[in-house]
Nucleic acid binder design. Structure first.
Lengths: 153, 153
DNA sequence: GGCTTGACCTCAAGCGCTTCATGTGTCCGA
DNA sequence: TCGGACACATGAAGCGCTTGAGGTCAAGCC
């Protein structure tokens, strides 16, 4: 009876920030931050407690954002993504371009990281040689490091 | 003879922040920042202009830091690196551990980036399918995306 | 001598969060 | 009904830089 009203309200409203955080992979702090900067629309609050209660559609949007942000996409590009979701003319092309651009970015990052990895491994070898007092190995490491350092930029 | 002193001082002092930036790959702003936070020792200044003049040893240190920071090493670890450079007992082991730890970090990052790259490529495919009005390809993309999104975390 | 140009300076704000301090509202068992 | 525990709330500070505003100094040109 009296519970009916409450229950209904509770159903739609029962998605807490913690729930959304788990569903999206975004931290609670990040969710508040995204709301603050207007990437996410203002989330309605529970009357008495003032806690955020997320609606179904909002949750889905945020899950998508969680994926994008996991790819390292910038907040700016996420904004663009949301703008073009509706599907107006030419939006599909813009979206494709957006993702291709980001894919290239990640590809380059991988390339850079490979060089960095090699550098770090060589440095570890160097100190390993020093630890063992192996002057010859040390010398070889130094040479390789010098060479790799150039690629590192 | 009398000139020796002056010339020596001038020689050592003529390395500007721009020079060091080029040699190390660190931006001028970053060099000032590193000095401000005490990662780099205070750099002597030109008397009249107040401009920084880097000494030879400082330049070498900074070049090394440039490599480390290019690997994504944290400022904290760079501090540790500088602390253990002198070569006291046990330092070699600490250094090796430091570099191995960072190598592992980079290796993991590469793994994550690979997943992200796949995700972004699939998203590009999806919008490409939409652009072409190919409902079937769109459907296939959606499936793959759903699957990859899980790995994305 | 005045003017522009560069290279440099400092200080402050911005980025995209994370972490921390501090303060409520809700619910639970004792 | 008192007192915790707990999930939230806000606001400020920190991280590692980057960007921008506003100003100084030295050198070259007319």
């Amino acid at each position: 009876m009296a519970t009916t009203e409450k229950a209904t309200a509770a159903d739609a409203a029962s998605v807490s920030i913690q729930d959304v955080s788990r569903l999206s992979g975004l931290s609670e702090a990040t969710l508040r931050y995204y709301e603050k900067i207007g990437l996410i629309a203002p989330v309605p609050r529970d009357e008495s407690s003032g806690h955020r209660r997320y609606g179904g559609p909002a949750v889905e949007t945020i899950q998508a954002l969680g994926c994008l942000r996991a790819t390292g996409m910038s907040v700016q590009d996420m904004r663009a993504y949301l703008r073009h979701l509706d599907g107006a003319d030419g939006d599909a092309a813009r979206m494709r371009a957006l993702f291709e651009r980001n894919a290239e970015r990640v590809e380059q990052e991988i390339g850079h990281l490979r060089v960095r990895l090699r550098y770090l491994r060589l440095k570890a070898d160097l100190w390993d040689a020093r630890e063992r007092g192996d002057a010859e190995a040390e010398h070889r490491s130094v040479e390789k490091i010098t060479h790799t350092a150039r690629e590192l930029r």
